[in-house]
């Protein structure tokens, strides 16, 4: 399972970085989205990966670290998702404003003539 998660994070982050460095604003926003997915998965995996374990203490399950998973990264990733989502929406607004004001979707607001 670790390999699959690691590969997924790596692929998302690599494509995200590549897209962020592209010259069109739409590519940049897609890159930022992919990057934030990678980051969210990464935070989630920091609590170490388990299948079928409780995050919150329950009656009848022995109260030690062998029988539970860390709930904190799950809470953190929720916050990070919400904030990332809001920021991406904001970026979208600025992107549209830039498109309207400059008449192009180039990140520098104009094509460089060779």
């Amino acid at each position: 399972m670790e390999e699959i998660i690691a590969t997924a994070i790596g692929a998302l982050a690599a494509s995200g970085v590549w897209l962020v460095l592209r010259p069109r604003t739409y590519q940049v926003i897609m890159g930022l989205c992919l990057l934030s997915y990678a980051v969210n998965l990464f935070i989630f995996s920091m609590g170490s990966l388990f299948i079928g374990k409780e995050p919150i203490i329950r009656e009848g399950i022995k109260q030690d670290l062998l029988h539970y998973t860390d709930p904190l990264p799950q809470a953190l990733v929720l916050t990070a998702i919400v904030i990332g989502f809001a920021m991406t929406a904001l970026f979208l607004v600025v992107l549209l404003a830039a498109r309207g004001l400059t008449g192009t979707d180039h990140v520098d607001g104009g094509e460089k003539q060779p």
Binding site: V20, T25, V28, L32, S36, M87, T88, L90, F91, V94, L95, A97, A98, L101, T102, V107, D108, G109
Partner: peptide
Amino acid sequence: VVSGLHYLAINL
């Protein structure tokens, strides 16, 4: 708006 776009992207 153009410099704000850069500012936003860098900070994200």
